[in-house]
């Protein structure tokens, strides 16, 4: 029977929803038994959340002060040691997983499969390339360990009704190098729903023209209980911080409803939203490529349309 080891992503207290999405992907690997590993300073709270995920049979915890912040250099050697007992080692295709998993793959002497969007057979997967302009079917070499990241936007989270998983603490012997040190994390603290998991997302583009003007996007989002995103152009122009970028090199998201406001719709942006349930585009340029993918399009001046929409929804 195949064994899958999934690396949990968390902030020390709360399991990131990316883990439950990866668990759905793992369930597509025929007959696989799924274990989750939690690296943390104190893994207890996160381990319980991971143990509740449907399909998980065991949670392995590694408690070490260095794991208070996720450093690939510290996690990788320990994860490699644990990987000896598994056929698959999975992580999310978030900045956490993208940073960590290739380091693990290289230490295990295998190539990594990045951004799994579907499992076709136990060693065969589909993944996007060229900003999603092509989907390639890839096959891992027979008999080799599979190290992969999962494109979380392609999967729904599994439920968390599981009561059968055990939690086991282990202490890997692998030495943790001291050459990499955490300094600080600056987060744009916000009460809004998290961009990567929000059911509704409102994004603004370059047409907002200033950081102040972005207020109308925030107002609309707050009226709808939505997360807020932005195009690369809006981030590059300094209207909003980097963590709001949606697209090929930013966040790949799949909300039920996505509102693209003043976003022209470069392919690099579209690749970040193509799994959204319904895409609404508001743009004054009727030729904008965003209208080619929008389910509902409205040609108009965002500075009058957006306040009107906010008013209509409040």
């Amino acid at each position: 029977m195949a064994n899958v080891l999934l690396v949990a992503e968390h902030d020390g207290d709360t399991l990131n929803p990316s883990t439950a999405k990866c668990a759905r992907c793992a369930a597509d690997i025929d007959g696989a038994e799924l274990h989750v590993v939690v690296f943390a300073a104190d893994p207890s709270a996160v381990a319980e959340q991971a143990a509740a995920l449907d399909g998980v049979t065991k949670v392995v915890t590694i408690a070490h002060a260095v794991h208070a912040h996720a450093l690939a250099a510290a996690i990788a050697p320990q994860l490699v040691e644990l990987a000896a007992d598994y056929d698959y080692v999975l992580g999310p295709s978030t900045t956490f997983g993208k940073d960590l998993m290739p380091r693990v793959a290289a230490l295990l002497g295998v190539n990594q499969i990045s951004d799994i969007m579907s499992v076709e057979a136990p060693m065969v997967f589909k993944r996007p390339i060229y900003a999603g302009n092509a989907i390639v079917t890839v096959e891992a070499p027979a008999g080799s360990k599979v190290v992969a990241t999962v494109r979380t936007a392609s999967y729904r989270a599994v439920g968390s009704e599981n009561a059968a998983a055990t939690i086991e603490s282990v202490e890997p012997a692998a030495e943790i190098p001291g050459h990499t040190r955490f300094v600080e994390l600056q987060t744009g603290a916000s009460d809004r729903p998290d961009l990567q998991t929000a059911a509704r997302v409102v994004s603004g583009g370059r047409a907002l023209a200033s950081s102040e003007n972005f207020d109308i996007i925030y107002k609309l989002a707050d009226t709808m209980g939505a997360g807020v995103g932005a195009s690369r152009a809006a981030v590059d122009a300094g209207y909003v911080p980097n963590e709001m970028q949606v697209g090929q090199t930013g966040k790949i998201i799949a909300p039920d409803l996505y509102l693209a406001i003043g976003i022209s719709g470069a392919i690099q942006h579209l690749t970040g939203i193509k799994d959204a349930g319904t895409i609404v585009a508001i743009n004054k340029d009727e030729e904008a490529p965003i209208f080619e993918v929008a389910d509902i399009g409205l040609v108009g001046d965002l500075f009058s349309v957006v306040p009107e929409l906010t008013e209509a929804l409040s």
């Binding site: 978030t94 050459h179 990499t180 994390l185 600056q186 987060t187 980097n242």
Partner: peptide, 13 residues
């Protein structure tokens, strides 16, 4: 570093 949560700073030898 540009990470999902914001900006993370690390020091590397």
């Amino acid at each position: 570093r540009e990470v999902d949560a914001g900006l993370e700073t690390i020091e590397v030898d």
